[in-house]
Nucleic acid binder design. Structure first.
Lengths: 261, 261
DNA sequence: GAGTGGTCTAGACCACAGC
DNA sequence: CTGTGGTCTAGACCACTCT
């Protein structure tokens, strides 16, 4: 039938000319099945972030479909930011490392100019049992182990962001303050290279809140000062949540940039 | 050569088998030229919002290209939300009217549930000369005529949003408080059907600010209360700015939803 | 020159909507 | 049944990159 791409080859076309049998109630186009197969390869680690994947011709041969079908599958994966096409070179697995795609997840910009390297200052990194709300958002059982990271971000020397980051303990097993402090570059790059967990997408809830005493002191503002509250849940392959991040942003001189299209 | 799609037909292929001459320094794919031609048809009003455009076969014949090339052009226009494909029916010009695509531009959601019809209360609508900053953002000359709309939005009876909306006076010539009050439905739908100006995309700068006295009174909060400040510039065809909107949102019980992907 | 992705074509067939 | 968009194929050629 036309439903189970869990095997190595797509379900259509034992022969070459035969195409979608279709008419089944759960019809799925061939290229969607190919897309799922490629995603499996990404998820299983067959092709790692930054690496090149086989050429379209090779994949077409492997999956016994035409190059055009592979192309359409890759097109969608590239649109989803899972793959990156480079004409003349090949197709690569997207990575949080050597990319200026970090402005995809940190959208705080200065009122003037644009570029802004930031410095992270780690406050703590400890393991504890998940509070009920965090467990719910991470799809864990209550009291499952989690890692809590608290940190400050400075832009041009100004303390601008306070983050509380919650991660499932089972996935981030060897994560310690030392390893965090040693690592250069964005957190998501570390998660990807050190723990094999790649953030694919995120969903944010944004509010304006008044600074309470502890946060006010960290961000060097007065109690009651208006802060941008950003609550983010990040997802990896299969839409599995793997991070809850609660951020408090000082938005004097900086703003959160968003494009509606 | 391969550069001027301002004429009625694409620049490639006088014959049928001849394809892109290319090798020119300003190479542009055929489907991009088709895309530009279709966009012209949208902008000129040849096909109006909500209407159906010619079938792929027809367009292919008109432009003297293959159906596949037209298809790729339409695919991109649909991805940009300028067109909407409906299998079995045809391809339609996107519209702000009969669509639940209004949640694309108003992203305030209640903490529980999801749906939320809102009521608009018009405070004023008057014409004046553009302040320097507004003129700059709307790409007008200082002191050019503009329309200023001030209004409140209520969700479930709660006053949640105060908006100041600036529009170029030349485009919105007959816009009055009466017409605004009479019109049912979202503003962008009215702009589209009454003034032929369709909003395509928008860019927002979001901050947390303290309510000042006038805004606090309108939103029924205390002075200094944290509000979400949303400054939006909206664009129509050709990336021409046609609206500046400054909103103040009460985010207790509501949040601004954003997806990073 | 060889290999990669990118474009374009032509033709076949399928899924869906409306008559 | 007809017309629409949606899928799939096969082949040709172009643009880009590296050797």
């Amino acid at each position: 039938m036309n439903s189970n791409p869990a095997t190595t080859t797509p379900t259509n076309g034992a022969g070459a000319t035969e195409v979608a049998p279709a008419s089944s109630p759960t019809f799925s186009p061939l290229y969607q099945q190919i897309k799922a197969l490629i995603t499996q390869g990404l998820e299983s680690g067959e092709w790692k972030p930054g690496e090149i994947i086989p050429s379209e011709v090779e994949l077409a041969a492997r999956y016994k479909v035409s190059q055009g079908t592979v192309r359409k599958a890759i097109d969608e994966l590239a649109a989803d930011n899972l793959l990156v096409r480079r004409q003349g070179k090949g197709t690569f697995v997207a990575t949080h490392n050597e990319d200026r795609v970090q402005f995809r997840f940190l959208r705080l910009l200065p009122d003037d100019g644009d570029a802004h390297p930031h410095v992270s200052r780690l406050l703590e990194c400890r393991r504890l049992r998940a509070p009920a709300e965090i467990a719910r958002q991470l799809d864990l059982k209550p009291a499952d182990p989690v890692v809590l990271i608290r940190r400050l971000l400075q832009f041009d020397g100004e303390t601008t962001v306070f983050d509380e980051i919650w991660l499932p303990g089972a996935v981030f097993r060897g994560l310690t303050a030392e390893r965090l402090a040693d690592y250069k570059g964005p957190l998501y790059a570390m998660f990807e290279t050190e723990f094999g967990t790649r953030m694919i997408r995120a969903s944010e809830k944004i509010r304006a809140v008044a600074a309470d005493a502890p946060v006010a002191e960290l961000l060097k503002v007065t109690v009651g000062f208006p802060l941008l509250s950003v609550e983010r849940v990040s997802y990896t392959y299969g839409d599995r949540p793997v991070e809850v991040r609660r951020g408090w942003y000082v938005t004097t001189g900086y703003y959160y940039q968003n494009d509606l299209s």
